[in-house]
Design a protein around this nucleic acid. Structure first.
Lengths: 149, 149
DNA sequence: GTGTCAAACGAGAATTATTATAAAATTATT
DNA sequence: AATAATTTTATAATAATTCTCGTTTGACAC
């Protein structure tokens, strides 16, 4: 945890940004909820518990900044809210998501899976891929189990 | 064109919805701009040209309805606006997109490409896939050509 | 055709997420 | 400690979308 914060601090400094207490508090919340897909509002409320003086705009700016630095990914599942997801350190590519249309849960797939597809796209469409977003909508294992009962 | 409208009309009727003049005008705009990825505002302005009395809320309501019926897909490229895309008739799956980070163009890939990936996901994650969204971000062939000049 | 009733519409208000603004506070540096 | 630049706070502004509600329309029975 401390090491990751330290590395993020260095990353900020290398572009002459500061790791202010507000930014650190925000990063800590993201690290503590790595599994989740928090909205800006979610992050705001969680940060407020530890640092009640923080403003919503600061959280937005911090998330925007972290997004630019590729520390987090800003994603959108079509529910009108942006969600922010910590990138795995050293991950070349963005991970995928499984959104359950029954219970609304969002699971992550860290494996790449798209290598072959990307080769085809690069070749057939002459498109130089920098990043990708892949989301599956369907029914998760939990809801499937429930139905069998 | 007329046949597709006729089929959409039947689809609406089968769920006891009406194809009102406003709805028909909206569908016509979508058919005429099948290549594009129009926002609700875009659609509204185009429909207004032919049917100036139409209201913005009606366009939103119609797009929402068509989205429920799977006639259009509501997509979100992360620019804060929802876009609406006609589904290919009979297409089992939603098509993919290539978003160029230089010129902002959006191209479509109609081929499935994900069959193998989906098999893996269904099996390994025990997830029953109903639909998917796949978007690549990168540099399109037009911008690549430009750079070589 | 006319009456009826639910569905759909239009106009504008309301809501929600996000961004901009400006004054005050903080930070690193001298 | 003073300075200058960055960052924060609080609030206002904006933009996309949805809601409300009084009015209109369309489909069907008579």
């Amino acid at each position: 945890m401390e090491q990751r914060i330290e590395r993020i601090k260095k990353q900020l400094h290398s572009q002459s940004y500061k790791l202010t207490p507000q930014r650190e508090a925000t990063v800590r919340v993201l690290l503590e909820h790595e599994e989740d897909h928090l909205s800006a509002e979610n992050v705001y409320m969680l940060v407020k518990e530890k640092s009640p003086e923080i403003g919503l705009a600061t959280v937005y700016r911090t998330l925007e900044l972290l997004s630019e630095l590729k520390v987090v990914d800003k994603i959108n599942f079509g529910d009108g809210v942006s969600r922010y997801d910590l990138r795995q350190e050293g991950a070349a590519h963005f991970h995928h998501h499984l959104v359950c249309i029954e219970c609304g849960s969002v699971d992550e797939i860290q494996e790449d899976l798209l290598e072959d597809v990307e080769k085809v796209v690069e070749k057939e469409w002459n498109f130089y891929i920098k990043d990708h977003r892949l989301t599956f909508h369907g029914i998760c294992y939990r809801c499937r189990d429930k139905k069998e009962e």
